[in-house]
Write a protein that binds this DNA or RNA. Structure first.
Lengths: 148, 148
DNA sequence: AATGAAACCGTGGGCTG
DNA sequence: CAGCCCACGGTTTCATT
């Protein structure tokens, strides 16, 4: 599917506020509301828009510990492990990476005990050689959008 | 502000679909729609809900290069730099961290040239000693939610 | 926290270029 | 075919209780 300038404008409006009404999106992109509706629907069908997420301040909910964990594997395949990690409720991201580590995961915890359990769970696996945990001292930015 | 079980249920519904109507949220949490509306408004005022973001497949928009970059500083303060990085349109996250690096940033690019420019911009600064760039080969998960 | 009423909006059909 | 316009039922919003 090809995205044109109108689609981009629509996405930008949604980035500003994903709960914005079709009508307002239409006004701000100089199209009719039916068109806004149809284009958004199409982008959802094409999985360009995969859903809508509330930006929650997890710190206010007690998740004070954000961690970035590098994982070094033993041997070849980490896919199973990555899948398992991805399903853990504390995890927000899992990447296969080049360089120093084989995988990087980002996870949020309410306390060190939860973090500990998580790391132990990873280290239990035979395909994991070691992990390296970085604690975030301060989150300067964490908004899962890039400028279009 | 204190979050009770009802608020949590509301947040869970929004996590499933942040465009869900107040009415449906109310139905699924066994409260009236006015209550759903009032509670969500309160959580917005208290900045527990900071906004709503569309989950966009940036790869489909040409952003094929997701990078995790570790930054090592020279001397003391990296705050200015971090602020500057956070404002770059390619950047989705910036963290101050313990350990091997002083800061970690996550950024998405359409090509290596964009990445290169970004790294050069960082390295130009006197307060930066070095950077370490990890390219993601595969994104297993990147959903900026944790299970409540 | 619930009610209810007015304003606002989503959704689909039919029309137009 | 994509976009526009319209209409109706559904939804948001907020003052009131």
């Amino acid at each position: 599917m090809n995205i044109d300038e109108t689609d981009k404008k629509i996405l930008k409006e949604l980035q500003k506020d994903a709960r914005k009404s079709y009508r307002k999106i239409a006004e701000q992109t100089d199209i009719s509301e039916g068109t806004a509706y149809n284009r958004i629907k199409k982008m959802q069908q094409n999985k360009i828009i995969q859903g809508y997420t509330p930006d929650i301040d997890y710190q206010k909910l007690g998740y004070d510990l954000t961690t970035i964990i590098g994982i070094t594997g033993e041997g070849s395949q980490l896919q199973d492990l990555e899948q398992e990690i991805a399903e853990n409720p504390h995890v927000t991201a899992v990447y296969d990476v080049t360089g120093q580590y084989d995988a990087i995961t980002i996870a949020k915890f309410q306390n060190r005990k939860q973090l500990n359990q998580f790391i132990k769970q990873i280290l239990k696996r035979k395909d994991v050689k070691k992990t390296y945990t970085m604690l975030t001292l301060n989150t300067i930015k964490e908004k899962h959008q890039i400028k279009l």
